[in-house]
Design a binder for these strands. Structure first.
Length: 281
DNA sequence: AAGCTGCCCTGCGGGC
DNA sequence: TGCCCGCAGGGCAGCT
């Protein structure tokens, strides 16, 4: 499900319930998600204070006051839902427990945060906060799209000589962190680049043009609360609405917003790509 | 070493 | 209504 905009939307929704607050009780309803949960996770979290709630790529990171950080990944179907707080002047009651509620945080002050993940491609782990750079799930990640390390010269150099299609290259989290299947298709459409083209054979100027396009697409998506196709919910349970702004994603055979020709769907490395063969070269 | 494919898992929509 | 198939916002592991 969640790419950078969805994860950022969830993080922002969790901030008032979690940042600066103590986890009064952590409950773990099963021993594993994608991988086994860390040893004694419930005990290691219960009583800890969340000093900061950050995002890196598609991961939410909660720095605790005990030298450890909690990593949360939503996989494809993961949700983090807040209840028991005031939202927009109304009290948000605790809902009935749902199937696939795998981890629950009761926060001091009455908020409850529930991690629900039907497909269980999500993950949680604990790592030493000081050891973040060496931590295996984060060590290989490329620059954040909004960070200073992500710029035109970097992207041109990083893709130079690469034979893989530009679609696959932008999906590679070592090149740039946080893009997924939706936003790569949307980015390449806006940049007018054919997703099948070998990354290293696209002119430097056109590769450079991807940098501001990526930032614009992600910014617009965050402002819309992400894209809700199937699973994505904000922490409040609300839907995102960027799917209404899709120009090509999930629009197979519908008219291109620019030329009116049909949007095409192809499969690249096992995943759908949507593009306009008339507008993208 | 880069670049493929398979696979983890559940749920849903469409066709018959 | 039920069954089967294909497909889904990710990314690791194991090949070539």
């Amino acid at each position: 499900m969640p790419e950078l905009p969805e994860v950022e939307t969830v993080r922002r929704g969790l901030l008032p319930a979690m940042e600066g607050r103590i986890i009064a009780e952590a409950r773990v309803n099963r021993p594993d998600l994608r991988w086994p949960l860390p040893e004694r996770m419930a005990e290691r979290l219960t009583g800890a204070r969340v000093e900061r709630l950050r995002r890196r790529s598609k991961y939410i990171l909660a720095d605790l006051d005990r030298g450890e950080s909690l990593l949360i990944h939503l996989g494809m179907s993961g949700r983090m839902l807040v209840s028991g707080t005031m939202i927009g002047g109304f009290h948000h009651d605790h809902p009935a427990p749902q199937k696939h509620d795998h981890v629950v945080f009761e926060m001091e002050g009455g908020a409850r945060v529930t991690f629900n993940d039907a497909r269980r491609f999500g993950a949680m782990d604990l790592f030493p906060t000081e050891g973040e750079a060496a931590y295996w799930l984060l060590a290989q990640l490329g620059p954040e799209p909004f960070g200073n390390d992500f710029h035109e010269d970097y992207l041109v150099a990083r893709l130079k000589g690469r034979a893989m299609p530009i679609k696959a290259a932008l999906l590679d989290q070592r090149v740039v962190a946080g893009l997924g299947n939706i936003y790569v298709s949307e980015t390449l459409f806006r940049a007018g680049i054919d997703p099948r083209r070998p990354a290293g054979r696209i002119s430097a100027a056109r590769i450079a043009s991807l940098v501001p396009v990526i930032r614009t697409v992600l910014t617009e998506a965050i402002e819309a609360g992400g894209s809700s196709l199937r699973d994505h919910r904000q922490a409040s349970g609300e839907l995102g609405y960027f799917q209404h702004a899709f120009r090509v994603y999930d629009r197979e055979n519908q008219p291109c917003v620019t030329c009116g020709g049909p949007v095409r769907r192809i499969v690249q490395s096992g995943r759908s790509t949507f593009y306009c063969p008339h507008c993208q070269h």
